[in-house]
Computed example of a mutant assay.
Amino acid sequence: MTRAKPVPETVTVHVPFRLVKRGGRKEMQLPDGASSHRKMDNTLVKALARAFRWKRMLESGEFTTIAELAEREGIAPTYMTRVMRLTLLSPDFVQVILDRTQGPGVTLARLLEPFPMDWRQQLEHFG
């Protein structure tokens, strides 16, 4: 019978990374070539869900104006209008966001800025 080597009490692991701001929060970024499973950007997904829900509420006649809906939701009508523009994103680009394959530069702040209405140009614009 052989004796096992003693296990050290402390193990030190060095992981090279840097912290970057993404969507208003800090995120760990690994060096190029390191594998990582990016988690879904919940900020983008929530904004998309809200935009489509608000659009549906207006189209159904539940609310007649953005101002009325914004008041009920407790947010500024100007912010609601900017978020609702996300419903104008191409279905392909929405799928990219839901599949978590968008580039690191695709943040909610960037999506709330004016973007091309042509769906082909959107992928290039945010690419």
Rank of each mutant, 00 (worst) to 15 (best):
V13K: 15
V15P: 12
R18Y: 12
L19W: 15
V20T: 11
R22W: 11
R22E: 12
G23S: 15
G23E: 10
G24D: 07
R25T: 15
E27L: 14
E27A: 15
E27H: 14
L30S: 09
D32R: 14
G33A: 13
A34T: 10
S35P: 11
S36E: 14
H37S: 14
M40G: 14
D41L: 07
T43D: 06
L44P: 03
L44A: 04
L44W: 02
V45S: 09
V45E: 10
V45R: 10
V45H: 09
A47E: 01
L48F: 03
L48W: 01
F52M: 04
M57N: 08
M57H: 09
M57K: 11
S60L: 04
S60V: 01
G61C: 05
E62N: 05
F63D: 05
T64K: 13
A67P: 01
L69Q: 01
L69H: 03
L69K: 05
A70I: 04
A70V: 05
E71W: 04
R72Q: 09
E73R: 08
G74K: 06
M80S: 09
T81P: 07
R82F: 04
R82W: 00
R82N: 09
R85A: 04
L86R: 05
T87H: 05
L89A: 00
P91I: 06
P91V: 07
D92K: 10
V94N: 00
V94M: 00
Q95L: 09
R100I: 07
G103A: 10
G103S: 12
P104L: 06
G105W: 07
L108N: 00
A109K: 11
R110W: 04
L111F: 01
L112D: 00
L112F: 00
E113P: 02
P116W: 01
